[in-house]
Structure formats: C-alpha cells, structure tokens
Design a protein around this nucleic acid. Structure first.
Length: 426
DNA sequence: TCTGGGGTCCTAGGACCC
DNA sequence: TCTGGGGTCCTAGGACCC
C-alpha cells in the first residue's frame, strides 16, 4: 500500500478507535432469517458452486467457492438454497445504515463488512465498546442478523479482532494490550497473508505474528518482497498508518465467465466476449467512466492463465468496440499458445478509468483501424445502439434487450444477481 | 474429481524521455 | 560518441481479499 510505505516512518497514535463490523456467514444467515425451518441446519447458498455456507455447514468443512459436489460429499445432509440476492443487498445496506447512525466516518469494504471511526462520537454514545455493543444489539433486534465486531486503535487490529470475535461476538482490544493480543495469533489472520505467503513464512519457521515481528526485516523482504515485507513487519508491531477512506472510487471494472472446458475457437470465444463486453461497457456508460486499458484473461484447460492488455490513446465505453479489442487480444493469446486446444475461462477488464467523462460529444473511439475513428458512420451507429439499449434496459430491465442471445450457461456459472452483488460502485 | 466472480496492489523488465 | 542516472508509462504475471 503506497500510503503505508510513504508515511510509515512514524506511528499513528491519535487515539482513534476503529470498530470493524462483519456480518456472520452473511448470505446463509439471511436465508435462515427468511426461512426459519433452515435455522440450526447446515445450508449452502448456490448450486454448482457454494457461494456461502452457514456455520452449521462450515463445521463439516464446507466453504465458499467450493464445488457443490465436494460440499455434498463433506456434508450429505447439506441443504442447498437458491439465494435471495436483492434481500442480501437490502439487509447489507441496512446494517451499514446502523453504523451511519453513530458516525459519518464509515468505510464499507464489501456488502457485509465495514470499518467505522467513532472517535468523534464517544461524547454522544459512550466509549467504543459501548457503541459496538449497541450496534450489535440493533442489528440483531432490527434486522435479525448476527454481526461480529472488533474494536481497536488501528484498522488492521480491529479487523483481526472481528475475525476472532466470530461468530456473533465482540472483541475489544484495549490500548496497551495490543501486542500481547496480536503476537500469539497465527500469521494467517493478517491482511495480506494468503497461502503463498504462509508457505514462505513457514520455510523460516514463522507461524505466529509474534515470530513475524521478531524476524529480521532484511530477511523478511528477501523472502516476500519489499512492499509486503515492510507492510507485514509494520502490522506485526501494530503500526498501521491507514486512515478510513469513506469514498473510494473503483479503478477498474471487469467481468469473467468460467466455461467448464470449451474448444478455443471463434464460435466459442466471440459470443462470450461480446456478452462480457456488454456487461462491462454498460456499467462504464452508466457512470460515464470510460477506460483506456483493456485486459483479457484466458485460462486454459489446465487452469494456467494468461493475460494480454492494450492501452489506448482514448478511453472507450462502447460495447462492440470493447468486444472487438478483446477479441483481437484473445486471438493474440491463442496464437502464442498454439498447443492449447481448450479454454476454461474468459475475462475482460477495463482500467485507467476516467474520473469524469469528457463532454458527451467525445464519442467512443478506438485506435485499431480507420473504421473506428470518431464521427465515422459506423462509430456513430454503434454509439446510438448502445444508448438505445441502455435506455430500454433502464425501463424494462437488463434482460429486455441485448447483443445476440448468448447466455453464460457454463456448468459452474453463477446467477446474475450474485454477480451484481460483487460489483463495486464505479 | 481441477474453484466462481469482482476487485486491489505489487513486481520486474523494457521503452522512452530528460 | 559513450556512460550513467532518474522518472514515468506500459505489459505480464502473481498474490490476495471479499
């Protein structure tokens, strides 16, 4: 994190308090709320793939992202439920609203997770732990959902405390007790330590945060890189300079589709890319945030993935133009890997997003050939087609009209409602 | 038996400019 | 002409998070 690296020379000890709040097994909890007969039972949201598992299911080892079949093997009595996506959005928003009632300084991390800074409102509501208690009480009483909260002086520690508090708990790390709390915990609880870093740290015998804290910084950086080494060393001593960021804009937008296993031929990838481009470009247009860099990702049958990207001189947000650029990139990937006959996933992402779109007169344009220059008959026609489709969808919904008839019907494909939940606000 | 989908950040090499 | 240094942008790949 750039800011941490720049400002890391001094500690941030300003007496701030950061509750981190995290709704427990969120989607599954909502399903158990909506259908009381599911309470106390192992359930999984999803089908082909588990999108979320209840605590009763987690006991059996069922996890999000797991193939449905594997989950059923682990837990034969597992109940699969379809998923009430609009309810997740509504209840997630409502929980955040409870935080908003205490302080305006709220940083939402995802649909079910947020940080709050309550330093400015303790005179109204009491000490942080009291505020956290009331938040939990209200979410339980008004929404019927369990929520875990960690309270600490830094974001990182509050986040860890909220993990320790699960399920349905509250953990307060009193000032002065931070290091003794932190140093006995496993490194895997830290932000930024995933499977790869865990394995590397294990090579030098580091398994707890305390052991990490006592590791020579040079050795650490050689092991996991400069930025990660600096960051983890700082966090291990509870030096976390990050402030809450209440308004973060997205820096990229993308869409992907797992295909199972399909031949790498135009008949397969052209319509899929058009559908993905449509998803991405319509989001960009809705917020008028065209982007200059287009990246595609192709995953082969053996799960090895390759990316190709191009940065244009002018930002784009037109569906067909994005699709055509993506197509050229994918053809480049396939040409470079002639031995690969099957693909298992395609993705499109657009980055270098404009902060604010230029004047509407700035028509979408690409650089790959003449026909895409602005003002050309074809460019204008496409621009008009996008606008028309956007308008129809505004009135009648996204299914009402579209390019071609491609449904992303891969065996592991996920409902549109779930995709939309994961989309970050542009 | 091969993990879905939407994101962010970091690294390292090369191009290019001053 | 040769050598060296710094900064920025681009590309490809990796790791991680929810």
């Amino acid at each position: 994190m750039a800011m941490g690296a720049r400002d890391g020379r001094h500690e941030q000890r300003c007496g701030r308090h950061h509750p981190a709040a995290d709704l427990d097994a969120f989607y599954a909890s909502v399903e158990q709320l909506l259908d009381p007969s599911l309470r106390g039972k192992p359930i999984a949201v999803g089908g082909g793939v588990v999108l979320a598992a209840s605590y009763e299911a987690k006991v059996f080892g069922v996890r999000g992202g797991m193939p449905g079949r594997k989950a059923r093997e682990l837990c034969p009595q597992l109940i699969f439920v379809g998923g009430h996506f609009s309810e997740y959005q509504r209840l997630g928003d409502a929980a955040i609203k409870v935080l908003d009632d205490f302080t305006p300084v709220v940083e939402r991390i995802s649909i079910d997770e947020a940080f709050a800074d309550v330093a400015g409102c303790t005179h109204l509501f009491g000490p942080p732990q009291e505020i956290a208690r009331r938040i939990r009480e209200r979410v339980k009483a008004e929404l019927g959902l369990p929520i875990s909260i960690g309270v600490a002086r830094t974001k990182h520690l509050a986040k860890i405390a909220s993990q320790v508090a699960k399920p349905d708990g509250l953990v307060v790390v009193e000032p002065g007790t931070e290091l003794s709390f932190l140093h006995d915990l496993p490194v895997t609880l830290m932000w930024g330590v995933g499977p790869a870093t865990k394995a590397r740290l294990a090579e030098i015998g580091v398994e707890t945060i305390g052991q990490l804290a006592r590791t020579h910084s040079g050795a650490l950086e050689r092991l996991i890189g400069h930025a990660a080494g600096q960051k983890l060393a700082a966090l291990a001593w509870n030096r976390d300079p990050r402030k809450l960021e209440t308004h973060r804009r997205a820096i990229s937008a993308g869409a992907q589709s797992a295909l199972g296993r399909k031949p790498a031929v135009p008949r397969v990838f052209v319509p899929t890319l058009l559908h993905l481009a449509d998803r991405v470009a319509s989001r960009l247009r809705a917020k008028d945030r065209p982007g200059r860099t287009v990246t595609v990702r192709v995953r082969f049958a053996d799960l090895r993935a390759v990316t190709r990207s191009v940065t244009l001189e002018q930002p784009i947000q037109a569906t067909v133009m994005l699709a055509e650029i993506a197509e050229e990139l994918v053809r480049g990937v396939l040409a470079a890997h002639p031995g690969e006959r099957d693909i298992s996933l395609l993705a499109i992402s657009v980055s270098h997003l404009e902060e604010h779109a230029e004047l509407q007169l700035e028509l979408p344009l690409g650089l790959m050939d003449e026909k895409r220059k602005p003002g050309s008959r074809k460019g204008l026609a496409r621009f008009g087609a996008d606008r028309a489709i956007d308008k129809i969808r505004q009135r009648f919904g996204r299914q009402a009209v579209g390019y071609g008839t491609v449904a992303l019907e891969g065996p592991r494909s996920v409902p549109d409602g779930f995709r939309e939940l994961a989309e970050k606000e542009l």
